[in-house]
Amino acid sequence: MTSNQARIMIWSPPRSLSTAFARSMSSRCDTKVFWEPYLNCCTFGPNRTLHWAEDIPGVMNEKYTFSYVNELMGEPHPNSPVLFAKCMIEAIIDNFDVVRSDYQHTFLIRHPLKMYRSYEKLSQGVLPIDFKVAFKNIYQELNKFYDHVINVFGQSAPPIIDADDLQENPEGIISKYCEMVGIPYTSNMLKWESIKDPAVLNWEFIDVGVISQNSYSTGLTLSGAFTSTGFGNGVKKTETEYSSDVKKCADYAMPAYERLHRLRIKV
């Protein structure tokens, strides 16, 4: 590690603005971004435990082992004052020990109704994943890893961002986040260029999976984070109706979400 280099990682459930947050960090221009390293291993690598993508041609890569991504994340990268990784918590369920403890771990959460509603839309189109099963305990797992970061990694209480707060007050939330993780805030983090091909970002680990193929990535609703230019206009999107499946999942998740929500960054 180079002197004064910040190494930061953010964990979230799916559909929680994490790609937009990675774009915000990338727009600092001093930051090397690692795209979903552990999720790529357990979805597209030789030891994968998630199998939903196995029928999609060309998305697997045998090099994606935990040792491979951990080694690259551990290199000095002397030209990057900030190293930033974003990943989904489902990648490390029952496998917390694979995670590098020398990164400062932080969290991004989203109200369960909104998260499950967003994934329901996604599962009806591009990704045939049963969210009711795959993500039933996702907020509970976030809580477990939050405690793991404190009790096992020995880090102080990790910063938590709520997606609603981020959309309502991006400058306030991001500037406070930067203060808490020890990097300078810059207004560059509020705006970025719209792009069509994620490869132009030069993020590590985007050479694998559906994001690496335009025929699939353009159909993903995460592509909105690439074509967007910021976090929005400060107005929260609200749904008037939710399916019974979404409501049931959200009700189950609420106690775990509310615990993290109480601990979130407030400005």
Rank of each mutant, 00 (worst) to 15 (best):
Q5Y: 07
Q5I: 08
A6N: 14
I10P: 01
P13G: 07
S18T: 15
R23S: 01
R23I: 11
S24Q: 07
S26I: 07
S26L: 06
R28W: 04
D30Q: 13
T31M: 08
K32Y: 06
W35T: 12
E36P: 03
E36F: 07
P37D: 06
N40C: 05
N40Y: 03
F44Q: 03
N47D: 15
L50C: 12
E54M: 08
D55F: 11
I56G: 04
I56K: 07
P57F: 11
G58L: 10
V59K: 08
V59W: 00
V59T: 14
M60G: 12
M60N: 14
Y68T: 01
N70I: 03
E75P: 07
E75R: 15
E75T: 15
E75G: 08
P78A: 11
S80I: 00
P81T: 09
I89Y: 05
I93G: 03
R100D: 07
D102Q: 04
D102W: 09
L108Y: 10
P112K: 04
L113G: 01
Y116Q: 05
S118V: 09
Y119N: 12
K121N: 11
S123N: 04
Q124R: 14
G125H: 11
L127S: 13
L127M: 06
P128C: 10
F135A: 00
K144V: 11
F145N: 02
H148P: 05
P158K: 09
I161V: 12
D164R: 06
D164G: 10
D165P: 01
D165H: 12
L166G: 03
P170G: 05
E171R: 13
I173Q: 04
S175L: 04
E179D: 08
I183K: 00
P184T: 10
P184F: 08
S187P: 10
N188K: 15
L190D: 11
W192L: 05
S194D: 09
K196M: 00
D197T: 13
D197R: 04
N202C: 08
N202R: 03
W203A: 01
F205R: 03
V208Y: 06
G209V: 05
V210Q: 07
Q213E: 07
N214K: 05
Y216H: 09
T218A: 08
G219W: 06
F226G: 02
F231D: 06
G232K: 04
V235S: 13
K236C: 00
T238V: 00
T240Q: 02
E241G: 03
Y242I: 05
S243Y: 10
K248Q: 15
C249K: 02
D251P: 00
Y252D: 05
Y252V: 14
Y252L: 12
A253M: 06
A256D: 14
E258M: 08
R262E: 01
L263M: 15
R264D: 07
K266D: 10
V267I: 13
